[in-house]
C-alpha cells in the first residue's frame, strides 16, 4: 500500500510539472493555433541558460532564476519576431513545419554548445522543503514545483482576468478576425504569447533539470509528451493542461511501477490515441461543431 501511495504522490508531482510545461504550449495554441513542436527545445534552453548562470557565472540562485526568466522571455520574443512574424497569413501547415525545423535547429545548437552529456545543477534546495507523512516522502524539488507552479498559475489567472494585455490575448484566442477589427494589435499579442510561453517553458525546464539533470534529449522528449497532456486536457484549455498533466503523470508512474518500466514512456501516447477515439476534444476542450 505504501508503495502505491508513494507512486501516486510521485505521479502527481511529475504530472504537475508536465501540466506546467504544457501551459506554455497551450498559450501559443490558443492565441495563434500553432502546434509548437519546438516546445521541448524551449524547455531545454531555459535549463541550459540557468545551468550556465549558476555553475559558470556563479550567480546566486535567485538572481540566476530571474535572469533566466528574462532571457527566456526575450528569446520567445526574438523567435516570434524572426521566424513566425513573416508567416502571418500563410497556411498553418507552413508554420507548424517551421516549428519542426526550429526544433531540429535548436537541438543541434544546444548539442553543439553543451554536448549530449548529462549536466547537473549544484544542490541548492534547502532540506526543509521536503515533506514527510509516515513512510511517504515528497522530495524538496516537487514541493518547489508545487509552490512555483501555483504562483505562476495565480499570476496568469490575474493577468488574463484583469490586465488589458491579458484581455487582448483572450480576445485573439477567441476570434482573431473580430479582435483585429476591434483594434487589437494581433502581432503584439502573438509576440507576447510566444514570450510568455518561452518564459513558462524555461521555468519548467529548470525544475525538470533539477529532477532529472539537464540533458537535451530527455528535455525534448518531454516537450513532445506535452501532446498527450494537452489532447487529454483539451487543446485550448489551460486548466485542462494541468489536469491532463496530473493524469498522464499518474498513469506513467503507475505503469512504470506495476507493469514494466520500458512501457512507461509509451503509455502517454497510447492514452493519446485512445482519447482521440473516444473524446477527441479532450476533457475540457471546446467542441467544434460545424455543419456544411
Amino acid at each position: 500500500m505504501d508503495f502505491f501511495i508513494q507512486l501516486v504522490v510521485n505521479g502527481l508531482s511529475v504530472g504537475f510539472i508536465y501540466g506546467i510545461s504544457a501551459m506554455g504550449f497551450v498559450m501559443i495554441f490558443k492565441s495563434s493555433s500553432v502546434l509548437n513542436f519546438a516546445h521541448g527545445e524551449l524547455l531545454a534552453m531555459g535549463a541550459y541558460i540557468f545551468l550556465v548562470l549558476v555553475t559558470w557565472v556563479e550567480l546566486p540562485v535567485y538572481a540566476a532564476f530571474l535572469l533566466t526568466m528574462a532571457t527566456c522571455f526575450s528569446l520567445g520574443f526574438i523567435v516570434e519576431r524572426l521566424f513566425l512574424r513573416p508567416l502571418i497569413g500563410e497556411p498553418l501547415i507552413f508554420v507548424i513545419m517551421l516549428t519542426v525545423g526550429l526544433a531540429a535547429m535548436f537541438k543541434g545548437l544546444i548539442l553543439l554548445i553543451w554536448g549530449g552529456n548529462l549536466h547537473t545543477f549544484p544542490d541548492f534546495l534547502p532540506s526543509w522543503l521536503s515533506l514527510n507523512w509516515g513512510s511517504v516522502a515528497v522530495q524538496p524539488v516537487y514541493t518547489l514545483a508545487l509552490v512555483v507552479g501555483t504562483i505562476f498559475l495565480v499570476l496568469f489567472g490575474i493577468f488574463f482576468k484583469f490586465s488589458s494585455q491579458g484581455i487582448y490575448m483572450r480576445s485573439v484566442a477567441d476570434n482573431q478576425r473580430a479582435a483585429l477589427s476591434l483594434g487589437v494589435n494581433v502581432k503584439k499579442v502573438f509576440a507576447l504569447s510566444w514570450a510568455i510561453a518561452a518564459l513558462v517553458a524555461g521555468m519548467s525546464g529548470i525544475i525538470l533539470g533539477i529532477i532529472n539533470g539537464v540533458n537535451v534529449h530527455d528535455l525534448s522528449a518531454i516537450g513532445l509528451k506535452v501532446f498527450p497532456v494537452v489532447i487529454l486536457g483539451g487543446l485550448d484549455s489551460i486548466g485542462g493542461a494541468i489536469v491532463g498533466g496530473l493524469i498522464i503523470g499518474l498513469l506513467e508512474t503507475l505503469t512504470g511501477g506495476y507493469i514494466s518500466p520500458s512501457l512507461r514512456d509509451v503509455v502517454p501516447y497510447i492514452v493519446l490515441v485512445f482519447i482521440l477515439m473516444v473524446k477527441p476534444y479532450g476533457l475540457f476542450g471546446q467542441v467544434e461543431i460545424e455543419r456544411v
Binding site: V100, G101, L102, A104, M105, K107, G108, L109, L112
Partner: peptide, 12 residues
C-alpha cells in the same frame, strides 16, 4: 550535431 542544426536551418 552540426548535421541536425543544418537540417533544421534548411527547413526554416
Amino acid at each position: 550535431p552540426l548535421r541536425e542544426f543544418i537540417f533544421g536551418l534548411a527547413i526554416v
